[in-house]
């Protein structure tokens, strides 16, 4: 498994992906500064997938899935983890080859490994979005999600964006040959102060697992959910013309509230206070927000062109 070309740490996997996609012409963005469940929620993907403007971006997105917390004990599961996200619009004809190039860049040579594109349609009920594509398998392990966006927020994507999502911990563990995520070298193992993933995150996983499952104040969260929902609706309904006569619709601030509502819903779900039937209703409420934001973004884009 070891070769000179192989990265030696978690961060090196990330850095190589950053360099690779920068070299392919993507804007290397920074993570969105809000709690999200996946890299797709970053407005650089959700909103930019809409409208006619060309776009190419790549970024790391810290993601939170409260229900996946295992107190740092499970070798593969985390409530906070990193996704690497690439989005290119319109999707270029050679996107599969570009993607395979990124695997080579992190030391996975498709001539030695078994790389396969296995059907997996993507759908986000909370974003009202879906696309067709694959999960990419490397030696039987899912290393990425590859999607051609067809709809976001209920709008047809024209042109279509190609979206790649790498689960960074899992991918890096495979590349580095590590069995437990907490044992994975975070920085160079030969550095003066070598740090493992566990050095960085073991304690936080424990703390957040407890808070997510047992401690989060559910009444407060229900209130926050309602507040975010109301604020989102208010921003969307606000007069696009401000006091100085400027037309400035506010799709992005509204979308922040939609993201917030979505994350609060995930927290409530982890606390086990949302029943099966209510669950659908909550998802529908978040979708309605996301759809409103998408509508406003699209009209704003149309007005700009």
């Amino acid at each position: 498994m070891t070769s000179p070309n192989r990265p030696r740490s978690f961060q090196e996997v990330i850095l190589r992906l950053q360099s690779y996609w920068a070299a392919q012409g993507c804007a290397i963005l920074q993570p969105y500064d809000m709690e999200v469940g996946a890299g797709t929620f970053h407005p650089a993907t959700t909103l930019r997938a809409l409208g006619g403007r060309a776009w190419a971006a790549a970024y790391v997105q810290p993601s939170r899935r409260p229900t996946d917390g295992r107190y740092g004990e499970n070798p593969n599961r985390l409530q906070h983890y990193y996704q690497y996200q690439v989005i290119i619009k319109p999707s270029p004809p050679g996107l599969q080859d570009l993607y395979l190039g990124s695997l080579r860049a992190i030391g996975l040579d498709p001539m030695v490994h078994d790389v396969r594109f296995v059907e997996d349609d993507w759908e986000s009920p909370t974003l009202g979005a879906w696309g067709l594509g694959w999960e990419v398998w490397c030696d039987g392990m899912e290393v990425s999600q590859f999607t051609y966006f067809q709809q976001v927020g209920g709008h047809d994507c024209r042109p279509v964006s190609g979206e790649l999502t790498y689960g960074l911990e899992r991918l890096a563990m495979y590349v580095l040959g590590v069995e437990h995520v907490m044992d994975m070298p975070f920085n160079d193992p030969d550095a003066a102060i070598p740090l493992t993933y566990g050095d960085v995150f073991r304690q936080t996983e424990r703390e957040y697992s407890r808070w997510n499952f047992d401690q989060a104040d559910t009444q407060m969260l229900f209130d926050h959910f309602k507040d975010a929902e109301a604020e989102c609706a208010r921003i969307l309904a606000a007069d696009p013309v401000d006091g100085a006569g400027r037309t400035i619709p506010m799709a992005h601030p509204a979308y922040d509230q939609a993201i917030k509502a979505s994350h609060i819903f995930n927290l409530l779900d982890a606390r086990g206070v949302i029943s099966v039937t209510e669950r659908q209703a909550y998802i529908g409420r978040v979708r309605a927000l996301a759809k409103g934001c998408a509508d406003l973004f699209v009209t704003t884009e149309e007005a700009r062109t």
Binding site: S91, P92, D121, G131, L132, Q150, R158, P159, V160
Partner: peptide
């Protein structure tokens, strides 16, 4: 059963 568009 399900088809898609791509690119532009």
């Amino acid at each position: 059963p399900r088809s898609m568009r791509w690119g532009a």
